[in-house]
Simulated scan of single mutants.
Amino acid sequence: MSTSSSKSRSGLALVGFIVVTFCAPLLSVGSMPDAWYAALQKPSWNPPAWLFGPAWTLLYTLMAVAAWLVWKRVGCARPLALYFVQLALNAAWTPIFFGAHQLGWALFEIVLLWIAILATLLSFRRVNRAAGWLFVPYLAWVTFAMTLNYTLWKLNPS
């Protein structure tokens, strides 16, 4: 394969990872914050609504680049299987929390997501150190989100 063909394929793969990664939140578009969420008791450290869009845009971009870096080294291997598992868990949280209003089940699900993110981060790090580091902000954000989910669950017993 020629160098330009290889670069083209690599560029297309990066675009593919970005598209697939950004499709995850689109699966839960109908389950976004509404009057129910607005009425919940929240801790004083609850982030403002405007922060979530930019934060997730950055995180999804970092995730996609990390997956692409791993793909460039090992192709479609176990680390990418873990990536897609955590991406599915990521997509599942919003409908459980915002759609079904199940704070306890959402907490259980986000714990599974956290474990999957950590497993992906460690797996990525073995393949490409930079890819592992690109997952650190995502793990930190989900750690915060898990703490917030727990706090909301405690403040708003059903």
Rank of each mutant, 00 (worst) to 15 (best):
A106T: 01
L148K: 02
W141N: 02
A38V: 14
P137V: 02
V65H: 08
V74R: 08
F84S: 02
A106Q: 03
L103R: 11
V29A: 15
L87C: 05
V19P: 08
L51E: 09
Y37Q: 15
S123P: 11
A55N: 07
W50L: 11
E109V: 00
T3E: 15
L103E: 02
L26G: 03
P47M: 12
S4P: 10
G99W: 01
M146P: 00
R73W: 00
G75A: 07
I117A: 09
F52N: 07
S5V: 13
G132A: 09
L152I: 00
K42W: 12
I18E: 14
T143W: 05
P48W: 04
G99P: 00
Q86N: 09
L58N: 04
F84H: 03
V74T: 13
T147L: 05
N46T: 13
T61R: 09
R129E: 10
D34F: 02
W133E: 02
W114Y: 10
L87H: 04
Y150M: 03
L12Q: 12
P48A: 13
L51N: 03
A81L: 09
A38R: 15
M32I: 13
L69Y: 03
L113T: 02
W153E: 05
K42D: 12
F144A: 06
W141P: 04
A39F: 10
M63K: 04
T61A: 14
L152A: 01
L69W: 06
W45R: 05
L113V: 03
L69A: 07
R129V: 11
V142F: 06
R125Q: 00
F144L: 06
L118I: 14
S44T: 10
S123G: 15
L121C: 05
T21E: 15
K7N: 15
Y60D: 07
V15K: 10
A130H: 03
S2R: 11
V85D: 03
T61K: 08
W114R: 02
V111A: 08
G75N: 05
Y60T: 02
R126F: 00
W68C: 04
Y150D: 00
S28T: 12
S4M: 12
V142M: 04
V85E: 05
N156D: 07
P43A: 02
A131H: 06
V19C: 12
I115V: 15
G30W: 15
V85I: 14
R73C: 01
W68H: 10
L12K: 13
R126V: 02
F98H: 13
L155V: 01
A131N: 09
P137T: 01
P47N: 11
N90M: 10
P47F: 13
Q86S: 07
A131F: 07
W68E: 07
L80V: 06
A116Q: 08
N46E: 12
A77P: 01
I96P: 03
L80A: 05
P48T: 09
A67G: 14
L82Q: 04
A67R: 03
C23I: 14
A130M: 11
I110C: 01
A140F: 06
V142L: 08
S2K: 11
A116R: 09
A66P: 01
V142I: 14
L134F: 04
R9D: 07
Q41H: 13
L26S: 09
A77M: 03
A100F: 11
W68S: 08
F144E: 00
V20I: 15
C76I: 12
S5D: 15
T94Q: 13
M146D: 04
